[in-house]
Design a binder for these strands. Structure first.
Lengths: 74, 74
DNA sequence: TTGTGACTAGCAGTCCGTG
DNA sequence: TCACGGACTGCTAGTCACA
């Protein structure tokens, strides 16, 4: 399964923001935003394809605008 | 089924950009991006919850960055 | 020209576990 | 602390007929 470039970019962006915002573990952040830890792991590696609802949920948990989460994607 | 505010905002943003970019009908735009006309209709009204892959596909069809499509969402 | 209900295949998202 | 796998349920992608 080849992963699209935009998903890799999204995953890296998510991981960067999570750490910048002080969430040192995926599990703590997952609990914070109400998502599963294995799902966060999959998102950060680009193997998962999140819906708009989830993107917004993640952005809220990171205290940034949803557009900010996609800012590195072309 | 109540539609989340962020989906309404996304739908309105999509419709606005579509028209601004010169696609007067959903059908012409749908054909341009390779999606079904009724699916575009559902997105513009917020009844559909698109995945990241779809959001990126729409952005490319509108010749804007994906983040630009979410710029009105909070 | 667009909105809507209904449909199926496949994936989004959860929960269990391992190294 | 994280990557990864299997199994599961509900929901999304994609499409059609019709108003």
């Amino acid at each position: 399964m080849t992963i699209p470039a935009h998903r890799i970019a999204f995953g890296e962006r998510l991981r960067t923001l999570r750490r910048e915002l002080g969430w040192s573990s995926q599990e703590a952040f997952a609990h914070h935003v109400g998502l599963d830890r294995t799902y966060i792991s999959g998102l950060e590696r680009g193997s998962r394809n999140p819906t708009l609802d989830v993107i917004v949920k993640l952005a809220h948990g990171l205290d940034v605008k949803p557009a900010e989460l996609l800012s590195t994607i072309y």
